[in-house]
């Protein structure tokens, strides 16, 4: 399996009030064809900025991709002109956002928004596009698709809107779907419906998915491989079974222990002390050092590399220095 998407050494910085905010600070992520890759992290970890960088949807002013490469099928997305990028966006790479209300246009009907992409990318006529839109609505199990197609977003519930967003994203049969917290705004029973739908589309269309979430439960259920981000960096990377069986980075371990479980009783939760750091506030050493239970002097002075352990698991922590040895130290 070749890599469909390869992010190499990506640095996306924001500039405000003369300050530089390194939201994404040297990130390497690769996504194989047909794979569902999860990116997990808390607020400010840089997971959403990474996905917006891939789509080249960052705000024009105040942000810049400083360094790195984003290769899609081996071609650099960063070198494309805006027109060439538009051919890819919505067509080969589609995106679903967290807030289905704010990402649908309230003054256009569902049908108008659904037909736009296929008319642009596929050159469908209005009539063909409308039929296609209805077909897509049926595919995402929207009842009364022929009627809903003429309704406005505000007439739909949150779950229905997210279905419309998915229909829109899937309408050009994209190879890569980027889903940024697709179920976070939804109730748990609706979330179950939407995750079910995404799984179904993945299995029937073979779409590769980049799933951005803060919910480890969703990751366990959906993903093949997982990247854990913290303060703009990848701190751990592993296949989903390895990650949940033996998380190796202290941050991942802490995250898992701090979650209350629906099927278990814990008297006290282990919690990670301190606060999630603002990007750019930690200048030296490991970014997790101030909250880490295993912190040593070295952690405060020097930033650890991403070590490659067994089964392709990677972890950015000095704890692995002895076990892994210097010679196998990864990127």
């Amino acid at each position: 399996m070749g890599n469909l998407l390869e992010i190499q050494g990506l640095k996306t910085y924001f500039y405000s009030d003369g300050r530089v905010i390194p939201a994404v600070d040297g990130v390497d992520i690769s996504l194989r064809k047909g794979e569902t890759l999860g990116i997990v992290g808390e607020s400010g970890s840089g997971k959403s900025v990474t996905s917006l960088s891939v789509m080249r949807l960052l705000p024009k002013t105040g942000s810049r991709i400083e360094d790195g490469q984003i290769l899609y099928k081996g071609n650099s997305l960063l070198q494309l002109s805006e027109n060439e990028m538009r051919d890819i966006r919505g067509n080969e790479i589609a995106m679903i956002f967290q807030e289905p209300m704010t990402s649908l246009n309230p003054v256009y009907t569902v049908g108008q928004q659904l037909t736009e992409t296929v008319m642009l990318h596929r050159g469908y006529s209005k009539k063909e596009a409308r039929e296609h839109a209805i077909e897509m609505l049926k595919k995402v199990h929207i009842p009364r698709a022929e009627k809903i197609v003429d309704e406005y977003p505000h007439q739909l519930s949150g779950g229905m809107r997210q279905r419309v967003m998915i229909a829109m994203a899937m309408s050009c049969d994209p190879e890569l779907l980027i889903a940024d917290e697709p179920t976070t705004a939804l109730d748990v029973t609706i979330q179950a419906q939407i995750l079910d739908l995404m799984r179904e589309l993945r299995n029937t269309q073979g779409t590769s998915i980049l799933l951005i979430t803060h919910d480890l439960g969703v990751v366990a259920e959906m993903c093949d491989r997982v990247v854990v981000m913290y303060a703009g960096q990848v701190v751990e990377q592993a296949d989903v079974f390895t990650l949940f069986e033996r998380p190796s980075h202290p941050y991942t371990q802490g995250l898992m222990k701090s979650m209350p479980k629906v099927d278990q009783d814990l008297d006290r939760l282990d919690s990670i002390p301190g606060n999630v750091p603002l990007p750019g506030t930690i200048k030296q050493g490991c970014r997790f050092a101030s909250r880490c239970p295993f912190v040593e002097e070295k952690c405060l002075a020097e930033e650890p590399p991403l070590y490659t352990l067994q089964d392709g698991q990677q972890s950015r922590c000095w704890l692995h220095a002895d076990a892994a040895g210097k010679e196998v130290a990864g990127a």
Partner: peptide, 25 residues
């Protein structure tokens, strides 16, 4: 029962029968 079965568990090996509710509230 449906509500509890809808909660995603952080265990990738677990296979569960899920009650998926149709429609909205």
């Amino acid at each position: 029962q449906a509500l509890l079965s809808a909660v995603p568990h952080p265990d990738p090996r677990e296979v569960r029968e899920r009650i998926i509710l149709s429609g909205d509230v």
